[in-house]
Design a protein around this nucleic acid. Sequence first.
DNA 1: ACGGAATGTCATTTC
DNA 2: TGGAAATGACATTCC
Length: 404
Amino acid sequence: MDLTWQELMAITELQVTDAPNENPFETVPYLSMEPMMSYGSFGMSQPLVEPSPLACEASPATAFRGGYAEGVPTHQRGARLLPPAQPLQPPPMSLLDMGMMNSQGLGKDNARHPADDLESDSGLSLGSSPPLASPENATHGVPAYLPSDGTLGYPEGEGSCIGDHCCTRANVHSSVDYQNTFIPYSGTSYFPITPNLQLAQQPMPQSQQQITSMKQQLLPTALHDLQMNGSSMSRGSQFQAPYPNSRGSGPTGPLSRDERRALGLKIPFSMDKIINLPVDDFNELLTQYTLSDAQLTLVRDIRRRGKNKVAAQNCRKRKLENIVHLENELGQLKAQKEHLARERLEFQQNLTIIRCHLSDLYTKVFSQLRDEEGRPYSLEDYSLQQTNDGNIYLVPRNTSLDME
DNA sequence: ACGGAATGTCATTTC
DNA sequence: TGGAAATGACATTCC
């Protein structure tokens, strides 16, 4: 009997890890074992109604559940006199047949609730937004547009160079280093992958393939050009027509609208200076020349448009990168969800096993108990209740130790 | 001729 | 408070 008690208590110890309703992916509710866990009723005050998909039928638990657990309502039945509370505190208990448990998949990890993995593995931080990389350095430190004095623009102080030969210009590349000014998202996942998950090694979801395809299509044109000091950036602020050169026709080509305007108004300094000079230097530059209002307005417009052009390019690049980043995280989340679903299923199977054994042991205990007159205690009328101090008592079902 | 993509520009907000 | 950056919306051009 003591041995049986040890087994029973070992089973109840295992229940400590049972917190089924904390599963965030819970969709199919199953019976909580909590009533048996609390210091309240230690008996089957609630029937085990969950059908067992496992080999529970072959054990005595089947008869127990069928004959009592499912047949006995929770309301009180015929009351008997409360016998003297019989302390049934067993000696220190041992885990029941851990070898069996492990053999059935109840390993140290399997007993964990999936919710544990949610916290420990995912590191989900919905409150944090992706660190939008700022391209503000594009014009700091390393100027976005190299000084073009002598190589492009207008001869300072004279606007005599108005002709076809002036439409050609040196191909001054932008020195914006997008590889450095942008923080790649790929290295800072917000859903850290634990080794056991190995999400990164999972097959790429279809949506991710799509975005990858999109990236392959878009980035080479939109991003790669930017990164490779290509025509995009140069076009933006250098003396290149916005559209004719947009397909890689080279450094030469028709003047842009602002270029033509600048030529028309004989703006005495380069577009590069107008756009990329710091504001103080830009203002100082303006003081060195006597400009008409029209010239002044045009220069300021050119500066504004030139800066906004670069900003628009940066903005679009960021937008694409954000899409790629979010698609990557979506793929990781999907893989993580699948992993948790598998763990949940395994957990439920283990839980069913535990319940079967618990019912079996409970039946065994009651079958060996006898009252003062030698009659067996009925599971229908008596239950085991544990007090706060850990003692276990056999009490009628209509009696609660809490009230005493 | 039409649609999509790329890019420029403007207005507005945010930094 | 002014300048710069960011960004949505629209326009323009090319393919």
